[in-house]
Amino acid sequence: MNIFRLAGDMTHLLSIVVLLLKIRTTKSCAGISLKTQELYVIVFITRYLDLFTRYVSFYNTAMKLVFIGTSVAIVWYMRLHKVVKQTYSRDEDTFKHYLLIPPCFILALLIPLEFTVTEILWSFSIYLEAVAILPQLLLLQRSSNIDNLTGSYVFLLGAYRALYIVNWVYRFFTETHKIRWIPWISGLVQTALYADFFYYYIKSWKNHEKLRLPA
């Protein structure tokens, strides 16, 4: 474990805490894409299939349980909680997220890490995570005003994978000396998708103005 990966995991955890904080304190999920949250449930379940078969460390197991548990809890809040579900921006959250699943699955069949079920699903999960934020970014462009917690959530979510890229560079030079095409390229694509959001987020933060994404 290196500091970049720990920072990445903590940033990822913090993004989920911020989102849960927003939903629980404001009893609202306005501006949050349910489709992105549903994709994350698929990402975590297909990535952590080895949760009960392979023990890496207490930290690893605990974090996997937290990520699966919180992502399911968020979907539950947005779909079933009697108050929160009324605040879901159903009309704006229109990205056809199910269209993202077949290409990622086909890509995982064509370029898996290994031809085993768990590794094909792991590769699928890596590819899917790279594009899972698209419905959320589209929804942000349609939101007239993005509240601070939602903006912070998306920023932290983008920042976590950027920190993972630093972790991969660090591990390449200090540990593995092996190129890991699948996570690296997916991670670069994933972080690149946040590029314009990062630009407008940092600009709004510097100018102390409301965050707005151009439509």
Partner: peptide, 10 residues
């Protein structure tokens, strides 16, 4: 150690 066993990351 094949790469896949390297899934020590989240």
């Amino acid at each position: 150690e094949p790469e896949s066993k390297l899934h020590d990351e989240l």
